[in-house]
Design a binder for these strands. Structure first.
Lengths: 276, 276
DNA sequence: TGAATAGTGTCTTTAAGACAGTATGAG
DNA sequence: CTCATACTGTCTTAAAGACACTATTCA
């Protein structure tokens, strides 16, 4: 853009220039982090939500999140802090939670108060205790995905389902993107194990895939495939104490291996829509 | 976090609460967008850089970018605007450029002036004219990746290479992440065609893969693979006017097809490090 | 005993890669 | 003519999926 006369773009350029020298001299854009924390409870996918205690969207459920503390923390740290505050979980437990950046959302009208850019994070957690509501929330809970009318994916309530929970802001869209990312992550990484305890059976691992992908997998082929991917799981040499509740042999126990990517990947069964 | 006495965290919570009612009452975090725009010139990967006209990092090269205009634009729009301003290219041409969000960078000390969160974007462009420096830049140019000491990937200068260009802020890290993303995108999407004109030969497409992946591919197998993936390319029925500069038959011309994802994907040849 | 589950064997199909071979056209 | 290139044919190997089968344990 060549230098020009007095027009709105030039005004903006001057504002930007001033901002470099006085942090309070430009129209502010606020920055928050929001966390889509997923877990499995009784083999059902749940997302951590808080009930808003104040307007806007008072009484609505929303993703846990909050403002980034200026000058004090990185985005990853802010996300971990918000997650810890909302779940009431100690830092030691957080080490077993996978946390990664999902993407940023910045439509000017996404928050009625002002222009807020939210950096969304995605978390995979093992089954954790019920959360404690933070100071700015009326309640906090692990909510089954089936209770949400999330546009994306196979996790919709059946015909007789309860009224869907409506999410505040654009959090339904963020959740949809998070589910897409989660399904894809299970293909190329061993992160499905982040939903399980330190030791698990192949069947438990398969249940994670089946719930998040929303389809049944062939038990035998899945078993062989998992064991054939180098570094996905390693044997503990132990087995479960008892067989399954409806019979069957005791299953061998495994730990997460040291691979960070799966080779070859575990691709989802063919879907029609994957061409578009 | 349960309510507690007068501690820094509570102060912060109060600040956050106030921010909901007075946009200027909290310590600000600025939001910028930065664009990693990649193109191929003479089959070499180039990135669009600007030379900074003002401190900090005056005289350094940096990714084109700037502040998000509060209340006026979405993040995608801001990135497209910055790209258009820096390249001096019209909106019509921008339609042929692929632009996607890469990720956000928010280390408090990444900008010496204040806490700035940058939302990075990745762009794939066909060969465009040389850029015009915008008002806040001393210069702008397509810089060959070989001239940069980018930590990631196979694009380093040879033994007799010029002194490496140093990038401002954390832009070298952003560029590294962008290259990782670009290499991965070529596996699962048809976006390699975004580097080419509206009609291209299979050999030209292969050159894109070879340059971005940094390795030679088998011409025959590549050819058959491209044609076997549904929706990747479609024939125009035309051929090039002349054979190659060093002989050979005229090549058939193709357009980009309607697929958005490649099935099956074009996986990179096995690399050792892909397990970690 | 019956049913469900863990784990393995084997066959078919698909896709990737190595390699050879033919036709075309520039110099 | 010579040589690089466009494109195709064929064989080998790897991997995914379908299916069958055995062994184990709960009820």
């Amino acid at each position: 853009m060549p230098p020009q006369g007095h027009d709105p773009a030039a005004d903006q350029a001057e504002q930007d220039w001033l901002a470099a020298y006085d942090p309070r001299a430009f129209t502010p854009v606020a920055v928050t982090v929001d966390v889509v924390a997923l877990t499995l409870r009784q083999n059902r996918l749940h997302v951590l939500l808080v009930e808003r205690a104040a307007p806007p969207f008072q009484g609505c459920w929303a993703l846990p999140g909050g403002f980034v503390r200026a000058g004090q923390e990185d985005l990853d740290q802010a996300a971990a802090r918000e997650l810890a505050e909302e779940t009431g979980v100690e830092t030691a437990t957080l080490r077993r939670v996978h946390l990664e950046q999902l993407g940023s959302y910045g439509r000017p009208e996404r928050d009625p108060r002002m222009h807020v850019v939210s950096v969304a994070y995605l978390a995979f957690a093992p089954d954790l205790p019920d959360p404690q509501a933070g100071s700015d929330a009326a309640d906090a809970a692990w909510v089954p995905l089936a209770a949400l009318d999330s546009a994306a994916g196979p996790h919709r309530g059946g015909p007789g389902s309860r009224p869907a929970v409506e999410l505040a802001f654009d959090h339904a869209a963020i959740l949809g993107d998070a589910l897409d990312r989660a399904r894809s992550k299970l293909e190329y990484t061993p992160l499905a194990t982040a939903f399980l305890g330190p030791e698990f059976t192949i069947s438990e691992l398969r249940a994670v895939y089946e719930e998040i992908w929303g389809e049944k997998l062939h038990a035998g082929n899945f078993h062989r495939k998992i064991l054939s991917v180098p570094g996905f799981v390693e044997s503990t040499g132990q087995t479960t104490e008892r067989g399954g509740s409806r019979g069957g042999p005791r299953a061998r126990l495994y730990r997460t291996g040291d691979a960070r990517l799966l080779h070859p990947a575990l691709l989802r069964p063919d879907r029609e829509e994957d061409i578009r």
